[in-house]
């Protein structure tokens, strides 16, 4: 089964995944969406960390440490950031963190990565500006987005066929430059929110 969700708070995501497990759906993978596999319905403990790794070896060492201490790695890749763990032994600790500071640390690491992504999209946008790929005047003249010769003289089915065929490309030409800006703002806001959660958690609120 597949599901699309977005969470800012790890605690809420953990709770949702535990509810899914209670209904018999255990997390199998993440990426564009959450992938689940059928499992025996029951109470499970799922915890999330946020880390990415410089080397494949570091990632393996990380997962081995968790496996040794009774936490099975369910999902997450070297670069995905969020890492998902299932409590797999009765005697393992109740959480993957044993103090408040290290538990809050995952939000700061997420904030750092969000800021990096925001900066990357800013660079992409500035590159587009400096390459003069952005024609803000054309923004208000959608007809100019279409390059098909004689498109606007066509009629009936042949018009709609040509129009709809070119639309995805035309929209990218017309407002595509907005995408890096939108992503920049999205990641920037997420990073700021994650940082604020971290600050609040560290100061014990």
């Amino acid at each position: 089964m597949f599901k699309i969700r977005m969470f800012l708070r790890f605690e809420k995501e953990e709770k949702w995944l535990e509810q899914m497990a209670a209904k018999g759906w255990l997390l199998r993978g993440t990426g564009l969406c959450y992938r689940f596999q059928k499992t025996e319905p029951g109470e499970r403990t799922i915890k999330l960390d946020f880390r990415y790794f410089k080397s494949a070896r570091d990632f393996t060492e990380y997962r081995t440490l968790f496996a040794d201490s009774g936490w099975q790695h369910l999902a997450g890749s070297r670069w995905s950031g969020t890492q998902y763990f299932l409590k797999s032994r009765a005697d393992s600790t109740e959480d993957i963190f044993s103090d408040r500071l290290s538990q809050a640390g995952r939000y700061q690491r997420a904030a750092d990565m969000g800021l990096c992504c925001a900066m990357a999209f800013l660079v992409l946008f500035l590159t587009m500006v400096s390459n003069e790929q952005i024609d803000s005047a054309a923004f208000f003249q959608p007809k100019q987005w279409y390059f098909t010769p004689g498109l606007w003289e066509l009629e009936g089915v042949s018009f709609w066929w040509a129009f709809l065929f070119e639309s995805p490309f035309a929209i990218m030409r017309g407002v595509g430059w907005l995408l890096p800006l939108l992503f920049m703002v999205f990641y920037g806001v997420c990073a700021m929110k994650a940082h604020l959660i971290y600050r609040a958690a560290v100061s014990g609120q």
């Binding site: 040794d68 201490s69 600790t93 959480d95 993957i96 963190f97 044993s98 290290s102 538990q103 995952r106």
Partner: peptide, 27 residues
């Protein structure tokens, strides 16, 4: 190695300090 440290810390502290994996990795 990591998990051995966790066990050793628990033993040295007389069971007072029980580190969790995520905290251990960060430390």
């Amino acid at each position: 190695h990591g998990y051995a440290i966790m066990q050793k810390v628990e033993e040295l502290s007389g069971g007072q300090v029980r580190l969790a994996a995520g905290t251990m990795y960060g430390a």
